[in-house]
């Protein structure tokens, strides 16, 4: 595990077509020390990644223009399997959907609704935050 990342968790791109969700996610991530950028759909997210590859992408499923899984496949093809870490963050909560995302190369999966505790747990899961003794 990269210890530098723990003192400064890194950069995160929040991809969601809802401004409310983006704002909530930004607030939670910034509270954990992340530097946050936003995108409204998969196509914008891909552009943002080309300009500056983040450590983490928090990715909604259903979005106009390009949906989450399409972005994920494109990003894996272009940037490889490990970076950025991709965490789905969606109301899609069926097992098949989760499996589909994992097969496409996602590292984690957050089912909405979520809160700060879940997000922190999941970030620890992927090694972007230290395991917090709860």
């Amino acid at each position: 595990m990269d210890t530098d990342r723990i003192s400064a968790p890194g950069t995160c791109l929040v991809v969601d077509d809802s401004r409310t969700v983006r704002r909530a996610a930004r607030r939670m991530l910034e509270a954990q020390g992340f530097i946050v950028a936003e995108a409204e759909d998969g196509a914008q997210a891909l552009e943002a990644c080309r300009a500056d590859l983040p450590d983490l992408v928090l990715l909604d499923w259903n979005m106009p223009v390009m949906d989450g899984p399409s972005f994920l496949r494109a990003a894996r093809a272009e940037f490889g399997p490990d970076r950025p870490v991709v965490m789905l963050c969606t109301t899609e909560a069926a097992l098949e959907r989760i499996l589909e995302a994992l097969e496409a190369g996602a590292q984690e999966y957050v089912m909405k609704p979520f809160d700060e505790t879940i997000l922190r747990d999941k970030l620890a899961q992927v090694g972007l935050l230290p395991q917090s003794p709860a």
């Binding site: 989760i98 089912m111 747990d121």
Partner: peptide
């Protein structure tokens, strides 16, 4: 609950050891 399975459980273990 959906909330409980997201606390401390890596998603890979969720899909491996749990069923909806």
């Amino acid at each position: 609950t959906q909330f409980e399975v997201q606390r401390g459980l890596p998603v890979q273990m969720l899909v491996k050891y749990f069923r909806q």
